[in-house]
Design a protein around this nucleic acid. Structure first.
Lengths: 146, 146
DNA sequence: TTTACTGTTGATAGTCATTTTCAAAGGATC
DNA sequence: GATCCTTTGAAAATGACTATCAACAGTAAA
């Protein structure tokens, strides 16, 4: 699974004439081995923890490459930080975000996808992507409420 | 309709002990008379066109007041600019955004709203708001494609 | 209407995330 | 290993937005 993705990036790099460097390998490892929706800063800190020499500009640059390679998806929530999440081939999912603790749950719903297509057709649009975020309180945070 | 909204703002201002100033009246006029999804910068330019003395900090501040007054909604697309759109009482709508020319179409769909609620319940969440954006090419831009 | 009080404004400096710049370092190819 | 040219790290630059603060202007009482 991780190997699979490494191969994808390798192929992408080859096709684009990119060089293979320690930094890119390292950042890819850290990215692939984390399952959260990491912000660039968080990822940078993780990388720096094991390899202090890596600059954050490199992390920014490399994450953009992952997006181009189809390995990652950029997501901008309303907190002003760009996050990157794993993207499995052909997969689409949306997010349920807790406004209390920030927990993000992923979900997928076929009905919504279908209705979206209908709406697009009705307006003559051809959809290339979409973004759906539901904001609210998760079970735990509801409990803590006064 | 516009008068109605002005009254809403007036009431809000009174309740909050805000003073009525030329700048706020002006910015409200410009905001209410534009039907697009304006970014702060765009609105600032419109305001400045007729009244060059107004500072952009005031535009930023005033738009936030409109949100608090329930007249406007903040929306952040992926272009890094905050936009403000009109908000009618109790109304919810989503956006269809052309990746070619940036045109934004609003739509509302009851099925999607209902499915969203179901999903939230399934995960034990209580939804307070949501955001749905569909990105794609509008009919005009599809035509221009090579 | 004048005065005194206090909210508001505009200019500017500050912040924060992200991008650009550029010299030095390091892959890749011969 | 020499050469070429991409990549890197540090720091400066950018862009959107926010905070600061002295000057200004509503407002309500005198």
């Amino acid at each position: 699974m991780i190997l699979e993705k490494k191969k994808v990036f390798l192929q992408f790099a080859t096709k684009r004439g990119l060089r293979s460097t320690r930094q890119r390998d390292l950042i890819l490892d850290v990215f692939l081995s984390s399952h959260e929706h990491l912000s660039v800063e968080e990822l940078y800190l993780k990388v720096k923890a094991s390899h202090p020499g890596v600059g954050q500009a490199t992390v920014y640059r490399t994450l953009k490459l992952f997006v181009e390679a189809g390995l990652a998806r950029e997501m901008t929530l309303s907190d002003g930080q760009t996050r990157y999440e794993h993207l499995l081939a052909g997969e689409h999912h949306d997010h349920l975000i807790c406004t209390g603790c920030g927990t993000i749950v992923e979900f997928e719903d076929e009905t919504i996808e279908r209705v979206q297509d209908e709406i697009a057709v009705r307006h003559g649009y051809t959809i290339s992507s979409h973004r759906l975020e539901l904001y609210g309180l998760c079970p735990a945070c509801k409990g803590h409420q006064r």
